[in-house]
Simulated scan of single mutants.
Amino acid sequence: MTLPCITDARRFDVGAHLPFHIGDERVGWIRENDVALLARWPDVFEIDGDADNARVTLAPHFDNVTARSAALGSVIGALAAEGRIPGWRNETYAIRNAFDATPLAYIERAASRFFGTMTYAVHLNGVVEYAERAPQLWIARRSDTKATDPGMLDNVVAGGIGWGFGIEATLVKECWEEAGIAADLAREARAGRTVHVLQSLPEGTQAEQIFVYDLALPADFVPHNQDGEVGEHRLARIDETARWIEEGAMTVDASLATLDCLLRRQWIDEDACEGIAAIFEPPTL
Rank of each mutant, 00 (worst) to 15 (best):
C261Y: 15
H123S: 15
D8S: 13
E247H: 08
F280M: 07
R141H: 05
V35H: 03
D34C: 14
A179E: 10
T102L: 07
S200F: 01
M152S: 12
A191F: 04
T66N: 13
V27S: 05
R109N: 10
A189V: 11
P42Y: 01
L217E: 03
M118N: 06
S255M: 05
C273S: 03
W29Y: 12
A80V: 04
I22P: 00
L137P: 03
A191S: 15
F165L: 13
L201W: 06
A183Y: 06
G49T: 13
D149F: 03
F280C: 06
G77H: 13
T251I: 11
A140W: 05
A121I: 01
I268E: 00
A254G: 10
I6H: 08
D269F: 05
Y93D: 14
T205F: 08
N155I: 00
W29N: 00
T148C: 05
D13M: 04
L104D: 00
D13T: 12
D24R: 12
D260N: 15
E32W: 04
S255Q: 08
G116K: 04
P282M: 11
G83P: 04
L217D: 01
S200C: 05
E91L: 15
R113W: 01
A249V: 09
D100K: 06
T205G: 06
V195Y: 01
W176L: 11
R190D: 05
N155H: 02
E178M: 08
V65P: 01
E168C: 05
A189P: 10
L235K: 12
A9I: 09
G151M: 05
I167S: 09
G164E: 08
T258V: 14
D239S: 14
V127R: 13
A131K: 12
F211R: 11
A257N: 07
A9W: 04
W163I: 06
T145A: 13
D239L: 01
F20C: 09
P283E: 06
A207K: 09
I245P: 00
V222S: 06
D24W: 00
F211G: 02
I268G: 00
D239C: 02
N33W: 01
V197A: 07
V14P: 02
A94E: 04
H233T: 10
I30P: 02
V65L: 03
G15D: 14
V56R: 02
C273I: 09
P223R: 01
I238Y: 02
I95P: 04
F20Q: 10
T145W: 03
A249C: 09
A121R: 15
G77F: 01
Q266N: 13
I22H: 00
V157E: 00
T148V: 13
A147W: 10
A277E: 15
L153V: 03
A189W: 04
